[in-house]
Design a protein around this nucleic acid. Structure first.
Length: 654
RNA sequence: GCCGAAAUAGCUCAGUUGGCCAGAGCAGCUGAUUUGUAAUCAGCGGGUCGGGGGUUCGAAUCCCUCUUUCGGCUCCA
């Protein structure tokens, strides 16, 4: 036992993650526990989890507890590491730019940021180096992070003296007796912790970028400067991270979209209005055909509706009141006072189809699908490749059903979403249940009872289907709660793909009805759903997911045939025709180039297979096959090669 | 929409502190070559240096402004 423990005689039980229990003197710290296990561990402990709460490893433990010592290998360890780094960055900035006021400075998924107010001065990239150097200098001082409890008044006095209105605002919302400060070197920050024991762990730092960020996320308040940074315990970790970032950038769908000629934009057409090139169109059409087939099997019917609708339609739906002024503005007609809008969503049109004739409970559920193109005037700063555009096509459908059918229909939609994710090998998705903000009910249309019912239905279905989901309060649409499926792009940004939304509101506004088996009129429930979300965003995420190497069933071309010289062009044409009989999409590279050049170009184009034909192949009526990214696969016949391709496709679709 | 950065040939990028008709590689075109598993050789064409305005003897380079793009923020029916 460590000597400092000797004079202490009250012992507490500490349960380690392997459920072994050790006894320590009351007041023991995480660091001391680590030291009692091994010195190596003690050198690496960044924080400690005590009965579920993450704390400083230097804080004393006063009662029996279950603990976990956290290192760089734990998410929580990294979080503490980066949180402390944010403090050190603030300390560096305060030294370099005295008078800077600090807002909040949390750790994030990769690194940390601090929101700062430098008054008139602007922080620029030219300042990064100085900040980085100062951070390293401060880190090397092995500054301890000292936690101090302070009264609310004490905190107010301190930050009044500093003239920091941001911290004062935060303090005002805190409860007296729960306020803590952390001191490191000359820097004192209002902070709940936890922090790593000292700054010496921080060995590598990179200031990544600066950006504007509204104080407290409120567009009506002052915009502060947000400084992003990341730190590591080893220089090599930083270099690896930067390499990883570079690699990720190569997967950017905007880059690959240009390289593989999938889509483009033109200022002359308009911002955020994608132009689908032939190869991109081929992929999109195949996705569409795939989903149509799945939906046909699931009992959907396809409909088609116009790209515009009378303004009154959106007044009925309520969308005009909510989004009218931020939309593409209404189109006037020769008739005075008559106005149409580019449709920003398909639901009102589908409601009118529902109303085409009286509906019986026997007609329900009615699953009405349309690949409907809609136009939304997104803010200019929001546009982003294919993931955020102003004109896009939703793989939309609206399910009209009885309240009793909601749950089953929800399950049916989830099944479709899972079918798609599986066919495209999307494993890394998260589900998000978006509920309304109970403190802000005026933001939403519809009555309490319906909201509660809808929210409960989603929660139940998700639970019963064993889908891991996070619940987000306040993220619901204005007309109802929803379940979204989120995936990440190459750079880790989250995008919503599939969505399922319960709507008790539109049926009300459109006065939709069905006759029940009691011969009475009833109100149907509407479920909006789009498993892809939009074709644009889905293709974008798909491109980044596979880095342009599309699954065989989607690839614009399966094969490129490479004749060794002009002499074998005829044989190449024969092969191409034969492959066509087996539904294999091929093209022939007849350029006057060497085989090596043609192979290189085909590899860069990410064409899944190459067939090289020359004298030998023509004589033997064979094909030399090369797989993209793999290499030479040897000799095949047209039949055996076709079987290989078609088997591979079949396997993916199972 | 807000904050910041950037914009040079179809693409990727050079172009020192303002100074000869603005450069390279790839792509394109022409010709030679007739090729065996990731780049054959030669020649040629191509740019109002994002648009506009200004400073200057002189601007891709400095200043203003607009547009677009990128990174964030906000928003996302």
């Amino acid at each position: 036992m460590h000597p400092i423990f000797l004079n202490i005689n009250i012992m507490i039980n500490i349960t380690l993650p392997d459920n072994s229990v050790r006894q320590y003197p009351e007041g023991v710290t995480g660091l001391e526990i680590a030291l009692s296990i091994s010195e190596g561990l003690a050198r690496n402990v960044l924080a400690i989890q005590v009965n579920g709460e993450i704390r400083d490893a230097t804080r004393q433990i006063h009662a029996d507890a279950k603990i976990r010592l956290l290192t760089w290998n734990d998410i929580e360890g990294k979080a503490a590491f980066w949180h402390t780094s944010a403090h050190i960055m603030a300390e560096a900035i305060e030294i370099l730019f005295p008078g800077t006021k600090f807002g909040i400075g949390p750790n994030i998924e990769s690194g940390f940021y601090y929101d700062i107010d430098m008054g008139e001065r602007m922080l620029t990239e030219a300042d990064f180096k100085a900040i980085e150097d100062k951070i390293i200098e401060l880190s090397r001082q092995n500054q301890l992070l000292v936690r101090k409890e302070i009264s609310k008044q004490g905190a107010i006095d301190l930050f009044t003296k500093k003239g920091n209105e941001y911290k004062l605002e935060l303090i005002n919302e805190l409860t007296d007796g729960e306020i803590t400060l952390y001191e490191s070197g000359q820097f004192t920050d209002l902070c709940r912790g936890p922090h790593i024991p000292n700054t010496g762990f921080i060995k590598a730092v990179k200031i990544m970028s600066v950006a504007g960020a509204y104080w407290r996320g409120d567009i009506n308040r002052k915009q502060l400067t947000r400084v992003y940074g990341i730190t590591f315990p080893k220089q090599k970790d930083l270099l690896d991270y930067l390499v990883l970032l570079e690699e990720a950038k190569k997967r950017d769908h905007r880059k690959i979209g240009r390289e593989l000629e999938l889509f483009t934009f033109s200022e002359n057409v308009g911002l955020g209005l994608p132009l689908w090139l032939p190869k991109g169109t081929a992929i999109r059409e195949r996705l569409e055909a795939f989903l149509k087939k799945v939906q046909r099997n699931a009992g959907y019917v396809q409909v088609m509706t116009p790209h515009i609708g009378n303004v009154n339609l959106y007044k009925t739906s309520g969308h005009f009141q909510k989004y009218g002024k931020d939309s593409f503005q209404p189109i006037n007609t020769p008739i005075e006072g008559e106005q149409f809008m580019l449709k920003p969503m398909n639901c009102p049109h589908h409601c009118e189809i529902y109303k085409f004739k009286p509906r019986s409970y026997k007609d329900l559920p009615l699953r009405m699908a349309e690949f409907g193109t809609v136009y939304r005037y997104e803010q200019s700063g929001e546009l982003h490749g294919l993931t955020r555009v102003r004109g896009f096509t939703q793989d939309d459908a609206h399910i009209f059903c009885t309240p009793d059918q909601v749950k089953d229909e929800f399950v049916g939609v989830i099944t479709i979403v899972m079918t798609i994710f599986k066919a495209l090998d999307f494993k890394d998705f998260t589900a998000q249940i978006s509920l309304r903000d109970p403190n802000n009910k005026e933001k939403y249309i519809g009555n309490d009872e319906n909201w509660d019912k809808a929210e409960q239905a989603i929660i139940d279905v998700v639970k019963e289907n064993d889908i891991h989901a996070v619940i987000e309060i306040g993220e619901a649409a204005f007309y109802g709660p929803k379940l979204d499926f989120m995936v990440r792009d190459a750079l880790g940004r989250k995008w919503q793909l599939g969505t399922i939304q319960v709507d008790y509101n539109l049926p009300e506004r459109f006065d939709l009805e069905y006759i029940g088996n009691d011969n009475q009129k009833h109100r149907p429930v509407m479920i909006h759903r789009a498993p892809f979300g939009s074709m644009e965003r889905f293709v974008a995420v798909l491109i980044e997911h596979c880095a342009g190497k599309f699954p065989l069933w989607l690839a614009p071309e399966h094969v490129t045939i490479l004749p060794i010289s002009e002499k074998f062009e005829n044989y190449a044409k024969n092969v191409s025709q034969l492959l066509n009989n087996y539904d294999i999409r091929s093209k022939i590279d007849i350029r006057n180039e060497t085989a090596g050049k043609k192979i290189r170009d085909a590899e860069l184009e990410r064409i899944p297979y190459m067939i090289i034909v020359g004298e030998k192949e023509e004589a033997q009526e064979s094909l030399s096959v090369r797989k993209q990214g793999i290499g030479d696969m040897g000799s095949f016949t047209v039949e055996s090669f076709s079987a290989l391709i078609n088997d591979e496709i079949k396997k993916m679709m199972e």
